[in-house]
Each structure stands twice: as C-alpha cells, then as structure tokens.
C-alpha cells in the first residue's frame, strides 16, 4: 500500500503550488501512471480521496492518465505498444527494442480557479 505515501507526495506538491499562487483554488490534479510504475490507480484514488476529505483542499479531483508500455525498435525506429509482454518489433521482428514510455509516475498538471 505505498499508494498512500504516493498520494501524500502528490498532495505536498499541490499544497506547495497553492501557497505559491496565493488565492487560487486547486480543483483537479492530473497524474500520469505508467503500467510499469508499480502503482495501482484504484488504490491511489482511494488513498488520495481519503487524505483530501475533510481538509481545506477538498473538493479536489484526481485524474489519472494511464500510460501503456511503449518500446522503440532500435533497427527500424518504429514506436509500438507492448501487448502481452511481447517486446520484439511487430514490423521488422527485431528483438532489440527500448522502453520509451510506461514507467512514468508524474505530476502532469493542476487545474486552478483564479480568484
């Protein structure tokens, strides 16, 4: 259940941003979660809501953008989505491919209401 500490890190950033822009209300925070990030979106949402409820940050929505695992072929440069753990290039068949996305755990944006 490290989603609780991850939710808490997200809220630390939200709080810092809110203080930096005094007077603004943060209504939503957008987070990218890659399928290799080891973070469960449902558990993260549950922990996030539990931490927000009853605080001055409420109501605050969490929008999770799931990011599939994508590799790039080192031979033909094709970028493709890895399905069923198949990491070979679907076009040229090369086994040498490199992860380009899917391990993200990033704060993408905040939605704020200016005063």
């Amino acid at each position: 259940m490290h989603e609780l500490s991850i939710a808490s890190s997200i809220l630390e950033t939200v709080r810092a941003e809110k203080e930096r822009r005094s007077g603004t209300r943060v209504v939503k925070v957008g987070v990218r979660v890659g399928e290799l990030a080891g973070v469960d979106p449902d558990a993260l949402t549950f922990c996030f809501d539990s931490l927000v409820n009853g605080t001055d940050l409420a109501p605050l929505a969490l929008e999770i953008e799931p990011r599939p695992r994508q590799h790039r072929c080192l031979r033909c440069a094709l970028t493709f989505q890895v399905v069923d753990y198949e990491v070979s290039c679907p076009v040229c068949g090369a086994g040498e491919t490199q992860l380009v996305s899917g391990d993200e755990l990033e704060l993408a944006y905040l939605e704020v209401e200016e005063p």
Partner: peptide
C-alpha cells in the same frame, strides 16, 4: 478554470 502544467515526478523529493 486554468490548467497549469507541472511536469515533475511524483516522487521528486525521494529522487
């Protein structure tokens, strides 16, 4: 409503 890009790692303090 304004969207403010953040583009930072969630665990940036740990990192």
């Amino acid at each position: 409503m304004t969207r403010v890009p953040l583009e930072k790692k969630v665990l940036s303090e740990n990192d």
